[in-house]
């Protein structure tokens, strides 16, 4: 078990190193950092001196090691565009994106899992067919169109909810949160639904497929033959076994949440990391792009490590090895 976790951690480190390498390559080879940092008036000699000072003439491996070391110390360099430290720029945007992503994920799980269970247990019901058709349409509508539609209906036509920005936020420590004011929640609702819909349909379909598979298994049929109460059969026996593959996919989906948060943030002008990333692409602000990558990969890896721990918690086969 310890070995299992350790192995996953080593794999995570590998993923992080690769992403760091990507970010470094971006920084180093896409455009010349020196011309980006200096103006036209800087002389060639000054540029050369700066190059030497920054160690850009050092061997490649050495540069990469230093780059990684700096990252570990929290030194992420400076933005080409705003000349601010990238660390600060990203840090100030993290709360907005995380809150959006987590609320969206919760929405998708709260609706997706029960819907998946229901449609698996009553595969021929009318409601099931309706839900399945609706979700099929759901995965087919691009996220940005869902956002536009929600804005159009609830923002423009009905005027119930704000159509952009975070509304009122509350400062807690250094964390700017939407979750502690009514206004903040109003602003959060539409973007979170927009982001959650796609994940919801995926979750539902996955839970349904896994649940149907489990319901056919021998141990469920044996439990039925023993007259185990239906509720226990469905939830304690079947759903629990469904969860093992489902949480894996949910871990992987976290990547999707982050990716689509870029779109959602763009539609709702939500001041999160995604919006920052879009701006940085538009202005070819390489350091911000690179750091964004590393931060996203870090969250992804973190979530998947948690998933691995959950795995161990759920499945005794990973916890207890000995067969006697």
């Amino acid at each position: 078990m310890v070995y299992f976790i350790l192995k996953r951690m080593i794999q995570s480190v590998f993923v992080m190193l690769t992403v760091a390498f990507l970010a470094f390559s971006l920084f180093r080879f896409v455009g010349d950092p020196i011309t980006q940092m200096t103006g036209v008036e800087t002389s060639v000699e000054d540029q050369e001196r700066l190059r030497e000072e920054l160690g850009l003439n050092d061997p490649f491996v050495y540069q990469f090691t230093r780059f990684t070391g700096d990252m570990l110390k929290g030194d992420f360099g400076f933005s080409y565009r705003t000349r601010q430290p990238v660390a600060e720029m990203i840090a100030s945007r993290i709360p907005a994106t995380l809150e959006l992503g987590v609320v969206a994920l919760i929405i998708s799980l709260l609706v997706g899992i029960p819907a998946g269970v229901y449609t698996a247990l009553k595969p021929r019901g009318v409601l099931t067919q309706t839900i399945l058709m609706t979700t099929l349409v759901g995965v087919s509508i691009p996220t940005f169109v869902i956002g536009i539609m929600l804005i159009f209906i609830f923002g423009v036509q009905l005027g119930w909810l704000p159509t952009f920005g975070r509304g009122g936020t509350v400062q807690i420590g250094g964390w700017e949160s939407s979750l502690f004011s009514f206004d903040g929640w109003r602003a959060l609702l539409l973007p979170a639904i927009t982001l959650g819909v796609y994940q919801l349909t995926l979750t539902m379909r996955l839970v349904r497929a896994e649940m149907m598979e489990v319901m056919r298994s021998d141990y469920i049929r044996f439990a039925m033959a023993r007259g185990v109460p239906t509720a226990s059969l469905h939830y304690r026996h079947a759903l629990a076994n469904t969860m093992v593959p489902v949480i894996t996919i949910i871990g992987l989906q976290f990547g999707g949440v982050i990716a689509f948060s870029i779109v959602t943030e763009s539609v709702f002008q939500w001041p999160g990391m995604g919006l920052l990333f879009l701006e940085s692409i538009r202005f070819v602000d390489i350091p911000v792009m690179g750091v964004y990558l590393v931060v996203i990969a870090f969250f992804f890896v973190l979530v998947n490590l948690v998933v691995d721990l959950l795995y161990v918690a759920i499945d005794p086969r990973l916890r207890i090895r000995d067969v006697s």
Binding site: Y219, F222, N241
Partner: peptide, 13 residues
């Protein structure tokens, strides 16, 4: 009832 395969007849969790 008793099934064929004891490997799959019991809830593993």
């Amino acid at each position: 009832m008793i099934f064929q395969d004891p490997q799959t007849s019991l809830n593993p969790l």
